[in-house]
Design a binder for these strands. Structure first.
Lengths: 121, 121
DNA sequence: TTCTCATTTCGTTGTTTGGCGAAATGAGAA
DNA sequence: TTCTCATTTCGCCAAACAACGAAATGAGAA
């Protein structure tokens, strides 16, 4: 029950759900997600931490960046069902399409460039 | 997206999830649910209204009482998947078993009796 | 080793949410 | 019709939460 509530609470914020959808094509680093949603880095980090704690995503650190991806096959059944539910319910929505479109543009940029841009001095 | 978030928010409170599980065997009236969870009537009513608005449950009024039941077959796919997810993830948990046990006892009581008992004067 | 910098953690603020009791509602009983 | 009473709505309080900027972290670069 406790684990299940961690899952449902993780899914109860629209920005977190959008992050799950954005991660469908493949892993992204924090600064790319920050750029995609126009939120503060600390806010994005918090959201990712909540999704991670729920087991919905996993992280990997390489060089200077932390990459997040959707949970892999060995994830618990409840987690996989949650991800399927999100995908089936929202993959074809306008919001997901708009995010995907903007993400495409961000993916074409240099990663270091994206990270530097996040700094709004 | 908006509808989906209504669903996930509805599922993000443990008492609401317990209510969904309690409704699995069949419909219950508000005072039975109130007795089952030991919450104020107004609180239970609010929770049921949120579940109803999300399409997860439906209501029916007969004589003096309002009965709530899980959403029927013609419910949207996302709703049916949500209910399946809850059932598969939690039906066999200790919490669900404990609630079911207490519910059994309440079901043996006279309905009017249960409603009157709720009044803690 | 020290420096750099992407990310996380901390502390604060405004909003949302769950809980309650009291008052309002409204459909059946009388 | 008026009365009864199960349920809903309202108003309030305390706890939880999302968002931000600033400070801390810690791994790679120099």
């Amino acid at each position: 029950m406790r684990e299940f509530m961690t899952l449902t609470k993780a899914l109860s914020d629209p920005n977190r759900v959008r992050m799950l959808l954005a991660l469908r094509p493949g892993e992204l680093c924090v600064c790319q997600i920050t750029e995609l949603f126009g939120l503060a880095t600390s806010t994005v980090s918090k959201h990712l931490s909540i999704l991670n704690q729920a087991g919905l995503i996993r992280s990997r650190k390489t060089e200077r960046w932390v990459y997040y991806r959707l949970a892999d096959k060995p994830a618990p059944v409840a987690v996989r069902e949650a991800l399927d539910w999100v995908r089936k319910s929202l993959a074809k929505t306008d919001e997901a399409a708009a995010d995907a479109k903007r993400l495409k543009r961000i993916m074409k940029m240099d990663l270091a460039e994206v990270c530097r841009r996040r700094c709004r001095c």
